[in-house]
Design a protein around this nucleic acid. Structure first.
Length: 938
RNA sequence: GCCGCGAUGGUGGAAUCGGUAGACACGAAGGACUUAAAAUCCUUUGGCUAUUGCAGCUGUGCGGGUUCAAGUCCCGCUCGCGGUACCA
């Protein structure tokens, strides 16, 4: 009987669906296991062969865990809100909801063909109201909470109001926007608006004027992780800095917990490292500098407190509030001109052009250690958003300060013994400190750092600063708050209305606030977001309905927020919703969450390292603070699957002709390299007929062949339509079947490694399945031999080990070796084939299910127990020892397996050949590695 | 610049704890079956030397080192990939 994969795969996919084989209950006697894929954004292009790689890996692991008796949650859904659908809508006028729906249907169709064990009853789509209701709800919670530094957790804003009205804000330590101290009397005397304004400084979701990445082309602000090198990640458009009134999430409040949490989770070091860099913890010192001839003071942040005696000037960021205060009349014009000039430059220009620019403010600062007076400059190499937006410049030990000092001819004072600063600064944090002011020097400071190492000097200076009240020890983080507004249509609406210019939350019982229909998706001419086009988009507090915008003037009707939420809003808590996706009372019910806890295994791409994987950790920690969920880290183990690149093929056209020359002859001609569709090339040999029919211009093409064949060149490139190297999984399933696709994707190479897709090798895997299939033709009931049992149990051991180490490529090899050995033994015994079938089920579920039933089983193989390796079958009767002299193997000796180390040594030395090599001498040393090698040292 | 990862045949890759490098697969060459093709099966396949027999040497990006023994550990490079950056 032929291996008819098409029939088999259809049959079992239908069987699984109709009998709900993969639906999962919350609870039961089995231990739980949660396996999650990063849910896809359904783009119009559909899936290519690279997309399912991680899904196949997680599917294998899920099925394996299920066979081992775990209750496995393995869901799938769609990240459906986002820019591409909206861009498409702008171009074509098609509503994003329609295109998104269509794309999801296409994705589902493609995914269903591969035979995944998803519980589709738990599907979530971020654009559906019963899902985004909980995104809106979480946002409202963030609005209603503040971050208390004492509790090191989010606390309800009501507690804060209570504190303000009884004792003011003096004792409150919060992660918040700097707020002047006020008393309870002051608080109680303020208007509601004033109180709301103050509270806004404390909220975790807050509205504030912030410097944002504005992308004019997209008409939208972007978060830091959505911008790379001054260009938008989506579309590659220029991004500029702008101050806008925006919603932000106080992610920075969680910086330390996000850092600490990395210690408890099982992620790769490189990913943890990326997140650590992104969070960017930096321990340093804040020092107060007085302004000469003024009462003013300002604060700078430094990690090099040891360089206080090398400060020769100060620098302010152009955007710093201090600029206006510290600019003198004489310098006003020059400073204004400089500010205008830097303002015009886009982020990209600043990155491209790093030439030194700056202007003197006219003021001087006083070094609090020495009383020394140094000029205050303004330059755009100092960033307003980091530290205090002002620095002390130590040109001898900072390359940027050095370049600045050189350019403007400012003094350079070295502080490390033996360093040479005539050509460049000495930035390294090592060496012995010198040049502290000596006794009697003017100016003088009693702190003497001479002779200390840099590390010791930093510590000594910190102590001095604290003791003398000159500043404080401070930890800074690079991690910024996440800008949360998007001037866009296709996203979650904010559940917010405005009254008296201040935002208020729509009552929870009125959620979800649904996205209204609009005709036009472009931002409005006035610069307002597309929601400005909505005809009915205002809030009536009393009736809780949407009303005509024309009625806004009416007393009880208030306008809504016109922005929508960014892409990461919907993906930050989706893993929680899968646990309990039908729950209309809560994001996730307590019992469901207590049962599933968190994700045991998360598989997805590394491109989310500083976006989704930071935001969802933050979001999760916030919900943890609220007591909604029981784990503060969402993803216990995380694996990044590598990217699958394309493998492009080329033909070589002789310039100016329609003649094509084969790869190895191309150097004899002047040729032009042209991409050719990989689907009409097999093993780099071009199908000439199909090539002629591929495009009209090649209809009459001629060829210069080698050995009667046209050989194509090849290269590894990104998989994309323009390179004609896209391979569609549907085509592979059609030609070879889903099981072959699954095995081959795993066989390509290590899961975490990026590698090119090359259809050429797939025949080998397909052949294996056919050979395996043939072994089940005449199954008999004979007792298995020792050799057969050994092969089986060796394979069980290997497969179990491999799955647990996510080494799926070597498991496929192990199956091939096993099949090969059994076929040599001509083994078709049920006792061997039955466990082998279960072993194969996670990898190739369709053929395993069919073979399982052919062996006479009634139940599904999905519920069979995973076989266990019996070591006793693996015991060898004899062991082949390579005998080496001085590490070099000379011959191999077969010995009984049960010999002790001493006996092996004895037998090896007694051997005739050994004696020949020894040539009468006695060995210096003999090293026996049991089961491995005997090394004789001469 | 800084941080992280990697480099093994014609190709993808294996080698799990320092113990016979190249498993498994593709490709290639030769053979069997066949009128023929497809399919299937068998043999060979890192390089060099030898080949009527055995075998020998060499070999994991480069240069050193540790060790009886190194693809694997240590030091110094080269190249490639990824992340990140006027972060004070």
């Amino acid at each position: 009987m032929e291996y008819n994969f098409k029939e088999i795969e259809q049959k079992w996919q239908q069987y699984w669906r109709e009998n709900a084989i993969y639906s999962v209950e919350n609870g039961g006697n089995k231990p739980k296991f949660y396996v999650l894929d990063m849910f896809p954004y359904p783009s119009g292009a559909g899936l290519h062969v690279g997309h399912p790689l991680g899904y196949i890996a997680s599917d294998i692991y899920s099925r394996y865990k299920r066979l081992q008796g775990f209750n496995v949650l393995h869901p799938m859904g769609f990240d459906a809100y986002g820019l591409p659908a909206e861009q498409y809508a702008i171009q074509t006028g098609q509503h994003p909801a329609i295109t998104t729906e269509k794309n999801i249907a296409r994705y589902c169709e493609q995914l269903s063909k591969i035979g995944f064990c998803y519980d589709w009853n738990r599907e979530v789509r971020t654009c559906e109201a019963d899902y985004y209701k909980w995104t809106q709800w979480a946002f409202q919670q963030m609005f209603n909470y503040w971050y208390c530094n004492h509790a090191n957790a989010a606390r309800p804003i009501s507690e804060l109001i209570e504190t303000f009205s009884t004792e003011g804000n003096a004792k409150v330590s919060a992660a918040a926007i700097e707020t002047p101290v006020f008393t309870a009397e002051e608080w109680n005397s303020w208007s509601e608006k004033r109180q709301q304004e103050v509270l806004m400084n404390y909220r975790i979701a807050y509205l504030a004027d912030t410097k944002v990445n504005w992308c004019p082309k997209l008409g939208c602000v972007l978060a830091n992780d959505e911008v790379s090198e001054g260009l938008s990640v989506r579309g590659g458009y220029p991004v500029e800095q702008r101050v806008m009134r925006q919603w932000s999430l106080r992610v920075s409040a969680y910086a330390q917990r996000l850092l600490d949490g990395l210690e408890q989770i099982d992620w790769t070091d490189s990913l943890k490292e990326t997140q650590k860099n992104w969070i960017g913890r930096s321990e340093g010192t804040e020092v107060q500098f007085k302004v000469k001839n003024s009462d003013m003071e300002f604060t700078i942040f430094t990690t090099r407190a040891d360089t206080m005696f090398g400060v020769t000037f100060m620098v302010l960021a152009p955007e710093s509030e201090l600029v206006a205060q510290l600019t003198t009349k004489e310098q006003a014009e020059a400073v204004e001109e400089y500010l205008q000039r830097t303002k015009k430059r886009t982020e990209r220009e600043r990155i491209a052009d790093r030439s030194v620019t700056g202007v003197f403010s006219g003021s001087y600062a006083v070094n609090p250690f020495t009383g020394d007076e140094v000029p205050i400059w303004i330059s755009d190499y100092v960033l307003a958003g980091y530290g205090t937006g002002a620095i002390m410049a130590v040109p001898a030990h900072d390359s940027r300060d050095y370049a600045f000092a050189r350019h403007f001819n400012l003094p350079i004072v070295p502080l490390i013994e033996g360093c040479d600063v005539s050509e460049e600064s000495y930035d390294a944090k090592e060496g012995i400190v010198c040049n502290s002011p000596q006794e009697g020097a003017v100016p003088y400071c009693e702190l003497n750092l001479n002779g200390l190492t840099v590390k010791e000097a930093i510590a000594a200076t910190k102590t001095y600063v604290e003791k003398n009240n000159l500043g404080r020890i401070k930890v800074n983080y690079r991690l910024r708050d996440a800008v949360f507004s998007r001037q866009r249509y296709w996203g979650e609406p904010f559940p917010v209305y405005y009254k008296d210019g201040m935002p208020y939350m729509i009552p929870e019982e009125c959620l979800p606030l649904e996205l209204p229909q609009v005709d036009k998706f472009l931002p409005t001419e006035s610069g307002e977001p597309p929601l400005g086009h909505a005809k009915r988009w205002a809030w009536n507090e009393k009736e809780a309905t949407l009303a005509d915008v024309s009625e806004i003037d009416n007393k009880n009707i208030f306008p809504l927020e016109l922005c929508t939420m960014p892409g990461f809003a919907g993906s930050s808590a989706y893993f929680l919703r899968y646990m309990d996706n039908k729950n209309s009372e809560a994001l996730v019910g307590k019992s469901a969450n207590d049962y599933w806890q968190n994700v045991d295994l998360y598989i997805g791409g590394t491109e989310h390292a500083t976006g989704h994987l930071i935001y969802s950790r933050f979001w999760n920690k916030f919900l943890f603070d609220l007591g909604i969920i029981c784990k503060d880290e969402p993803f216990q183990k995380l694996i990044n699957q590598g990217m699958i690149q394309g493998r492009s093929n080329f033909v070589y056209r002789i310039v100016g002709t329609n003649k094509f020359v084969s790869y190895n002859l191309k150097n004899e001609y002047e040729t032009q390299q042209i991409h050719v569709d990989v689907n009409i090339v097999s093993n780099d040999v071009l199908d000439i007929e199909r090539f002629r029919n591929w495009m009209p211009e090649y209809k009459d093409a001629e060829f210069v062949l080698e050995d009667g064949k046209y050989i194509c060149g090849w290269a590894v490139e990104k998989m994309s339509k323009s390179m004609f190297n896209v391979v569609n999984p549907d085509d592979i399933v059609e030609r070879y079947g889903a099981d072959t696709l699954r095995l081959y994707e795993m066989f390509l190479g290590p899961l975490e490694q990026s590698k090119p897709w090359d259809t050429n090798g797939i025949d080998g895997v397909h052949r294996f399945l056919r050979r395996l299939w043939a072994m089940y033709e005449n199954v008999n009931e004979e007792q298995p031999s020792a050799a057969e049992l050994k092969t089986l149990h060796k394979t069980i051991k290997k497969i179990t080990f491999d799955i647990e180490h996510f080494s799926f490529n070597t498991s496929v090899s192990a199956f091939m070796i096993c099949q090969n050995e059994l076929s040599q033994l001509k083994c078709s015994k049920r006792a061997i084939l039955e466990p082998l079938t279960i072993l194969l089920a996670p990898f190739a579920p369709h053929i395993a299910e069919e073979l399982w039933h052919r062996l006479g089983n009634e139940t599904t193989v999905c519920n069979a127990p995973f076989p266990i390796c019996c070591e006793e079958y693996l015991v060898e009767s004899s062991v082949k020892y390579p005998i080496s002299f001085n590490g070099k193997v000379r011959f191999t000796l077969e010995m009984a397996a049960n010999l002790t180390k001493e006996e092996v040594e004895k037998e090896a030395l007694a051997n005739e050949q050994t004696q020949k090599y020894l040539d009468g001498k006695s060995p210096r040393k003999v090293i026996v590695v049991p089961g491995k090698i005997v090394n004789i040292v001469l």
